[in-house]
């Protein structure tokens, strides 16, 4: 059985990234993700947390176990109250930086996960949600 589970990790420094990775990894393993997918999920958490620190300095990562129509999954939500992204489409193309051109950052998270959504308002902050489903 999957325990109904939701947890939140404040992101203020590099050491918080490690905490978020560790919790996400443990939750994903508990949900029955393959070791390879557990690594992918940890990678997505790293990239999300890194982008919180780079663009807003502070925020949080919420991890949630999903159980929907016999499908298990993990939802990761990164929220910050930073300056927001003026051009989301451009940011998702990743053309403005070396890491972006290599497909890292938010575009990388989109490709690693099954579902991806982003909401951002200038001056108010950004919320990125990404979900991955367990392959049966």
């Amino acid at each position: 059985m999957v325990p109904p589970c939701q947890m939140s990790v404040p992101i203020d420094s590099d050491s918080d990234i490690i905490v978020a990775r560790q919790k996400g990894r443990a939750l994903a393993a508990e949900l029955g993700f393959s070791p390879t997918d557990v690594v992918r999920i940890a990678t997505a958490i790293s990239e999300l947390a890194r982008s919180v620190l780079s663009f807003a300095a502070t925020g949080e990562i919420r991890l949630e176990a999903l159980n929907c129509r016999n499908r298990r999954g993990i939802a990761i939500t990164a929220t910050d109250r930073g300056s927001g992204i003026a051009d989301v489409e451009r940011a998702m193309q990743g053309a403005d930086s070396t890491s972006g051109r290599l497909g890292l950052g938010l575009p990388g998270v989109r490709r690693l996960m099954d579902e991806f959504g982003i909401e951002s308002a200038v001056g108010q902050g950004t919320t990125v949600s990404a979900t991955k489903w367990c392959r049966q």
Binding site: R40, T43, L102, G103, P107, G108, L112
Partner: peptide
């Protein structure tokens, strides 16, 4: 090794796309 290789997954997927 698995962990250190994981970032390569992103450019790899970008390339396929």
């Amino acid at each position: 090794l698995l962990e250190s290789l994981s970032p390569f997954e992103m450019p790899y997927r970008q390339f396929l796309e």
